[in-house]
Design a protein around this nucleic acid. Structure first.
Lengths: 159, 159
DNA sequence: TTAATATATGTATTTAACTACGTAGTTTTG
DNA sequence: CAAAACTACGTAGTTAAATACATATATTAA
């Protein structure tokens, strides 16, 4: 085993990132193996629009947990792919409302069985003595109540 | 709750990345709050050299799980900070051997109590019904034995 | 009812990783 | 022992996110 894996909890951030990256790559290969022209990074936007139908740019950004500039660049790609389109909000002229095109909706129908299969594999991989998704939920909940930094500063002051 | 968190296992990669990013940022703030001029991304290299003393560029890359070009750019930053230095391997002229400078070693001594505190906080955050670090270990082990893609293709062929 | 503030979007730049490729030594092999 | 293959390192270019800044519209308040 290498030193970083041995260092344990301190390299947690690195470990999370590495695993995320690996899953993303495998996801890309998997879509390809099904002949589906879809990139994993598009998933959050497409999945959100599949459930919410019409949203503004910032609303999508909030749903997927990215900043709005990052979201805008994803939206540009998806518009290029003709999977989404946009229209002006007639009530609030600042807003650009995003929605799926028919092509986008068809692609989702095609991808659904692939998503189901992916979900099965991911469950198989992550459901062990410790369930990875649960573990993330639990950790994020704790951080939401009191941030890493707050906890650290508190421990420091208790010394 | 937003749609992505609800989508469950399918957005696992996104969730991992988000959590990693948050921990990295909090880590940076924490070093700063101790007046330590150190970036979280340097940790894997410094920690590795702390334990292995002298390693070549590619050896470090393997230890920390990055590609060698990424490692080279980290090493450049650390050389600029005068935390590490390098020398030619006299046996194998292709190799550049990397080691900590006295400044680097002093910094580690200074950082050790901070690392201990960080480790405590991380343990507090990640040790729940499901232990996040364990969950990562378990998932990575499974993937090591059979990749995501292989598992998916197998399930597909079993249909 | 204008001035100040807030919100929505967009652009430019930065960052931290990657892949692809090139060069220079080292090792293996016909 | 020369040719081929391999290894180590480095550079260039790409990518996917971020931050910082700019502009246009909407809302609130003096």
């Amino acid at each position: 085993m290498n030193i970083i894996d041995q260092s344990g909890i301190l390299a947690l951030s690195t470990r999370l990132q590495r695993l995320s990256e690996q899953l993303r790559k495998d996801g890309a290969l998997f879509y390809k193996s099904y002949g589906i022209d879809f990139e994993p990074k598009w998933f959050p936007v497409i999945y959100t629009l599949h459930h919410k139908e019409v949203l503004s740019v910032v609303e999508i950004a909030n749903e997927i947990g990215y900043t709005h500039p990052s979201t805008i660049s994803l939206l540009k790609e998806l518009e290029k792919q003709k999977l989404i389109r946009s229209k002006k909000d007639k009530v609030d002229e600042r807003k650009r409302l995003i929605l799926l095109t028919p092509k986008g909706q068809e692609l989702i129908v095609k991808m659904k069985p692939v998503w189901d299969l992916m979900a099965s594999v991911l469950r198989e991989i992550t459901d062990n003595q410790n369930n990875l998704l649960q573990a993330i939920n639990e950790a994020e909940n704790k951080i939401m109540h009191q941030s890493f930094l707050q906890r650290a500063l508190q421990l420091k002051s208790e010394e």
